[in-house]
Design a protein around this nucleic acid. Structure first.
Lengths: 118, 118
DNA sequence: CGGTATCCCCTACGATACTG
DNA sequence: CAGTATCGTAGGGGATACCG
């Protein structure tokens, strides 16, 4: 059974969730990891033009801390680190798809739907 | 047929969409309008403790500009304004529900799922 | 009643230099 | 290779006062 939501609790829960995705680069990182892809730190840096090492590391740490991304360190020299999605992180995909589908439904600015009704 | 997405375009589209919901109070406002509810400005102010008139007006303007909320002005004195969701705004509900369902799936911190696998 | 206008602050973000 | 440390900035948000 689902939780019972009031406007406040529902909003707070969604807000907390969106905060997890709220970083400037997090979605880009996630989309580079969807589908079971594993990427090294330097690979992500290359795939995401414009990101600074500080931001990449920070966003990855936060995603890791929030349980979306798993970090695998190979104890060798030179160091090697791979990032992948956790099961839960991968499970984000359908939810984001729902968001995208909603965005695609947006009526054009000049569409007669909303204006006609009033 | 759905659009074709690369990691960049998908991330950018989701980002744009989440930006629409990104204000500090927007989700709270939306959840107070879901289900066809109409609310006056002062009613929203009362329903949302802590919000300042500036923020309420600003967030409503942005939601209106993004096409989620419709503003209905009754030209009378004293003035009366009612806010409701557009059809598209109401259609957000299932997408947010998908997000909430995903959030509810989050495994507990100590759960053995992720640790055991590696 | 239903808002603006103004001022201040804080945090996310960016650039750059450096390190185990 | 895979990161930290440090400094600087922009704008989103909060408190308050005022207006048609």
């Amino acid at each position: 059974m689902r939780k019972a939501y009031t406007p406040e609790t529902a909003a707070a829960d969604v807000e907390k969730t969106l905060h997890v995705l709220g970083g400037r680069w997090k979605l880009i990182i996630l989309f580079h990891l969807f589908g079971g892809k594993q990427q090294r730190y330097s690979e992500l840096e290359r795939l995401i033009p414009g990101i600074s090492p500080k931001m990449l590391a920070q966003q990855l740490r936060q995603l890791e801390g929030d349980g979306l991304v798993a970090r695998k360190l190979y104890p060798q020299v030179p160091p090697k680190v791979e990032y992948r999605l956790t099961d839960w992180g991968q499970a984000l995909c359908p939810a984001l798809d729902a968001v995208l589908q909603w965005a695609e439904q947006k009526p054009e600015a000049g569409a007669p739907c909303e204006e006609a009704g009033s």
